[in-house]
Nucleic acid binder design. Sequence first.
DNA 1: CTGAAAGCGCTTACAG
DNA 2: CTGAAAGCGCTTACAG
Lengths: 331, 331
Amino acid sequence: MATLKDVAKLANVDVSTVSRALNNTSYVHPETKERIYAAAKELGYHPNVMAQALRQGKRHTIGVVVPRLHLAIFSEILQGIEQQARDLGYATLICTTGDDPKVEKECLNRLRGGFVDGIIIAATGRNGRLLRDIQASGIAVTQLVRRQELELSSVVADYEACGRDAVRFLASRGCREIGLITGSLHLAPYKGRYEGYLQAVREQGLEEITSTCDRDVNSFRYGYDCANQLLDENPGLEAILASVDVQGLGAIRAATERGLKIPEQLKVISLTGHRVGRMLETTMTSMEMPAFEMGRTAAKLIADEVEADAKHKPAHRHISFAPQLVEREST
Amino acid sequence: MATLKDVAKLANVDVSTVSRALNNTSYVHPETKERIYAAAKELGYHPNVMAQALRQGKRHTIGVVVPRLHLAIFSEILQGIEQQARDLGYATLICTTGDDPKVEKECLNRLRGGFVDGIIIAATGRNGRLLRDIQASGIAVTQLVRRQELELSSVVADYEACGRDAVRFLASRGCREIGLITGSLHLAPYKGRYEGYLQAVREQGLEEITSTCDRDVNSFRYGYDCANQLLDENPGLEAILASVDVQGLGAIRAATERGLKIPEQLKVISLTGHRVGRMLETTMTSMEMPAFEMGRTAAKLIADEVEADAKHKPAHRHISFAPQLVEREST
DNA sequence: CTGAAAGCGCTTACAG
DNA sequence: CTGAAAGCGCTTACAG
């Protein structure tokens, strides 16, 4: 790799002049500039970004830490983050944790060591202290999807509304027995959906019917097993709310295998839609997430904070997006 | 952020001693070590990885450049890359290009400038020269899924076998009219699947029936439109081969809307399965990709090359994986 | 066992 | 308009 020094030698000037010419950071005699450009081109010079970063103290990079990418909403949110970040001149560095606190800790420690200016994270919730430390050490941190630390900025969806609106919608269609497939209430999105569900269920004078099981929660199988459990225990069940799309697929499959007609005998709604619902044989009614926008917003938040003067950093902000009920064939 | 210097001052030793103690790179008196550890802990010291990298010339980071993550096989392959990379002590930096050559170029130029030791890429094919330059400049490059440059290592699936095996399987079930939804033949995977299809179709004495359309190729809509086109033009069509899972979803939907029973009146196979087929109402027969293994292998390849002596770099290697036909309800 | 020095590749006051 | 020098935070021969 050619360095500034090589270019300087070839162009017969000092490295500082090369730096100024290439970065357009001060006037350089046009002829000199010419020579420098030619030399840089000839050598195929590319600046070493690590050296730049070390010198300038800015890395122009955002780290994103999410539990998983495959068949999850995070891969869609990431598109928004990446696009916005690119527009603002930032690169994006993605880490997945599989929701393992240890892996998450490793990721964070790697990132904090100079790799990034800011971190966007959908956290396990077990490294809150570390996250606050990182923020305190001068790296901007924004929570994504899961809001666990109130002192850190966050971009989330209104999960309570998801649960509430879905129940109200079903009630307006005459459903009285509505089951919810949920997950660990330690995770804010599951808790939120549950609370919204509960509120609407009570308000409608219905009974609470929920199910969890002992599997990877973001999976087809989780939805499948829970749906079967709900149907076994509630012969009169009229509708199932799945927390996420892949659970919804599992629920639909379970219903199909039992010979239940959707939506006549059973209605199904996904409370976290990310473009999957409309692709199915029986399309699935979903609370569609503004995932792309959420990603863009998180990236913007981080960039704003990074670029603010150290003296008046913006206060942390909590932003919540409203998902939208998109009615399809499963209801 | 605390630096080595801060720790040195607090522990009353030279920075070099701190470095040696923290990295266990030479004997340090136990008592001194103790003091240093304590000081590091007190200050919450974390090494600046950019400075380390600049000094050592190694970054312990692999860049991954893929067209997209959402609902695509790349998000599954990435799990393999990340896990293997982590096991080998590398971080992973992901960029998505949306298959836009310009964005790809930007990504590559950013990565080459010191961010990574190696790059794994599913390329657009329009930056071949740049990729060879990068490899020549000392950054290891491995192609993923799409093998376009024969001088660069690659990890791909046997796409010809996908097309061939699927046709043979259908022929053995008595199908005679088999349509293929394909994409740009400039991309190796599409070309491979098409050629395998063609070979088997001829060998079975059948007629070639293909379809493309003018949309984003990795989409539900692409599969939906092409399937409709195939069905319109070939009233006797017995089976559809979709290139990727989301196209398969589109094809199934198109068939359903026409009132065709799957598999009795129409069979559907996805030639690039990544765990979606088994989640459907009518589960989809697929050529399942060993995506996780492919990811692991690509990461291993890069790491091997990075760690080899500059003198005897391993020659480039082309590795091909055999997908597996998993029969489900759609055939 | 530990310190002083050089240097990774860059940027940026400071002179002139 | 340009050069010489200092320094970002680290590692690593070189002495002692």
